[in-house]
Simulated scan of single mutants.
Amino acid sequence: MSTSLYYDASRATALTPAETAAIERIVTGQQSAFPYPDEESLFLYEEDSSEPDTVVAGSTKLPFDPDRVMPVLEHLLGSVTELRRAVPDAQWRVHLDDFDLPWDESEGYFLPS
């Protein structure tokens, strides 16, 4: 059984062109700096008309190799933190399967001890 990180943001207004550009920049930067090119990285879904308030959504399946899980997860949480800061006025949810990850204004998303 695999574990996945899910991330989504919703709000009543669509993304602005500046927000869209920031998201594209974050995704491109994340992919170029991803520690394991053979693993799944940040992946954003295409827009879904059945979820009109969702402005950002995606998921990433975490590696099976225990030595890779933490570096991948730390990298992903940093990227999702950047996404949230690029679209700050949305309602965000980031979770590992059914476990919601906490948000800290100064640190971003993190795994609690």
Rank of each mutant, 00 (worst) to 15 (best):
T3D: 08
Y6A: 02
Y6N: 08
D8S: 13
D8E: 14
D8M: 09
A9S: 05
A9H: 01
A12Q: 12
A12W: 06
T13F: 05
P17Q: 07
A18P: 03
T20V: 08
T20K: 07
T20N: 07
E24P: 02
E24K: 15
E24F: 06
R25Q: 15
V27W: 07
T28Q: 15
T28N: 12
F34K: 04
Y36C: 06
Y36E: 08
P37C: 08
D38S: 14
D38R: 10
D38C: 07
E39H: 08
E39S: 08
E40G: 06
S41F: 05
L42E: 00
F43V: 10
L44Q: 05
L44V: 08
E46Q: 11
S49N: 14
S49L: 14
E51H: 12
D53V: 09
V56L: 10
G58V: 01
S59M: 13
S59C: 14
T60L: 04
K61D: 15
P63I: 04
V69H: 07
V69D: 05
M70L: 14
V72I: 09
L73Q: 03
E74C: 09
E74I: 06
L76V: 02
L76P: 00
L77W: 02
G78T: 09
V80D: 00
L83N: 00
R84S: 07
R85F: 03
P88R: 12
P88H: 08
P88G: 08
W92F: 06
W92P: 00
H95N: 14
L96R: 02
D97S: 13
D97L: 07
D98E: 15
D100H: 09
D100F: 09
L101A: 03
D104G: 09
E105S: 10
Y109M: 06
P112C: 12
